[in-house]
C-alpha cells in the first residue's frame, strides 16, 4: 500500500476528485528531504565534543600554556557566543518565543558551558572564590536563570535548576538522582524534599499564572522526581515517617491532578508509580502480621490488575481528552 494506491482508493470512494489526487501525488514526489534534525544533532555533538576537549586541555596543560592565554581564548569564545545571542535577541515575553534565530539556542548553550569551564579554571588556578564554594556555584546558577528567562531556553533553565540543587548539595539530573546522592543523612532528605516541592510549586505557578508556561514541564519533572524519591526514602528510614508519607501522598495526588489539567500523561505515570510504591510499602509496614499472611499472596496480583484497569480507563476516570 503506497501513496498511489491510497489515492486510487480515495478516488473510488469519491472522497477526493482526480485533480486533487494528482496534486497530492505531485507534492509527494516533489517534497524535499529535510535533514534538519540530523544537522542539529551533529551540531550538538560538535559542541559537546569541543567543550569536553577544551575542558581536558585546560586541566592537562595548566602548567604549560600561559594562564592568560587560556583565559583569554575561553573568554573571547564566551563573549562571541553571548554577543551573537544578544545581537539576535527577540523582545522579552512571558510566553514561548516560537521563531528563535537559527543558532541562538546553540550559541547560548555553548556560551554557558564555556562559562562553567572558565569559572572552574579560575577557581582551580587562582583560588578565585577562596573556600566560599557556595558563591562559585551560586553565580552561574543565578546567571543561568536570568539567561534562561530572558532568551527563553529550556536547556539553560535545566542547567540552572541543576546548579541550584548542587548549591544545596544534591544531584538532581534524572540519570544520577539515585546513584550520586547520599540519602543516609537526614538533612539531605529534608532539603531534597523541600527543594523538590518548591520546584513543583514554581512549575505549577508558571503554568497557572502563564509565566513562561512551557517551563512548567522542566520544573515539575525535575522537582517532582526529586521530591518523590527523597520523600520515599524518608518514608523508608526516617523518624518522621508519617510526615513524609503525607507529603508523598499529596505529591502523587497533585501529579495526577496536574496530568489531568495539562493533559500531560508522563505526570500521570509518575503519580501512579510513586503512589503504588507508597501504598504497598505502607500496607506491609503497618498492617498486623496475621492479616498480611493471608493477604500478601493476592495483593500484588490483584493490585496490579487494579492499576491496569485504572490506566486502561484513565480517559473516562479523569476525563482526559486524548
Amino acid at each position: 500500500m503506497n501513496t498511489k494506491s491510497i489515492l486510487e482508493s480515495l478516488i473510488l470512494k469519491e472522497i477526493i476528485p482526480r485533480q486533487q489526487a494528482e496534486k497530492i501525488l505531485e507534492f509527494e514526489t516533489q517534497k524535499p528531504f529535510s535533514i534538519h534534525w540530523e544537522l542539529r544533532s551533529i551540531l550538538y555533538l560538535g559542541i559537546s565534543l569541543l567543550t569536553s576537549g577544551l575542558g581536558i586541555l585546560v586541566y592537562e596543560n595548566i602548567d604549560t600554556i600561559g594562564h592568560q592565554a587560556i583565559i583569554t581564548v575561553i573568554s573571547a569564545l564566551i563573549a562571541t557566543c553571548f554577543y551573537y545571542v544578544y545581537k539576535t535577541r527577540q523582545p522579552f515575553q512571558w510566553s514561548e518565543i516560537n521563531q528563535t534565530t537559527k543558532y541562538g539556542d546553540y550559541s547560548l548553550l555553548f556560551g554557558c558551558t564555556l562559562f562553567l569551564i572558565l569559572e572552574g579554571y579560575l577557581q582551580f588556578q587562582y583560588n578565585f572564590f577562596g573556600t566560599r564554594y557556595g558563591i562559585a556555584i551560586f553565580i552561574p546558577t543565578l546567571l543561568f536563570f536570568l539567561l534562561a528567562y530572558r532568551f527563553d531556553h529550556r536547556g539553560v533553565l535545566s542547567m540552572a535548576i541543576t546548579g541550584l540543587a548542587s548549591w544545596l548539595g544534591i544531584t538532581i539530573s534524572p540519570m544520577s538522582i539515585l546513584t550520586k546522592n547520599d540519602f543516609s543523612s537526614p538533612g539531605l532528605i529534608a532539603t531534597g524534599t523541600i527543594l523538590g516541592l518548591a520546584l513543583c510549586l514554581i512549575g505549577w505557578l508558571s503554568e497557572t499564572r502563564n509565566l513562561k508556561k512551557h517551563f512548567a514541564f522542566t520544573y515539575l519533572i525535575l522537582g517532582g522526581n526529586l521530591a518523590a524519591v527523597t520523600g520515599l526514602t524518608g518514608v523508608f528510614n526516617q523518624e518522621f515517617k508519617i510526615v513524609y508519607l503525607l507529603i508523598v501522598a499529596m505529591l502523587c495526588l497533585f501529579l495526577v491532578y496536574y496530568a489531568r489539567n495539562s493533559q500531560s500523561l508522563i505526570f500521570l505515570l509518575m503519580g501512579v508509580i510513586y503512589g503504588y510504591f507508597l501504598i504497598s510499602y505502607s500496607l506491609f509496614a503497618y498492617l498486623p502480621d496475621t492479616i498480611l499472611a493471608a493477604f500478601s499472596i493476592y495483593y500484588f496480583m490483584l493490585s496490579s490488575v487494579g492499576v491496569l484497569f485504572f490506566l486502561l480507563n484513565v480517559k473516562k476516570i479523569l476525563g482526559l481528552k486524548k
Partner: peptide, 14 residues
Amino acid sequence: ALLIANQFGQAPEA
C-alpha cells in the same frame, strides 16, 4: 532540555 541537564549541567562540585 533534560538531556542537556544530564550532559552539560554538572555544576562544579563543592
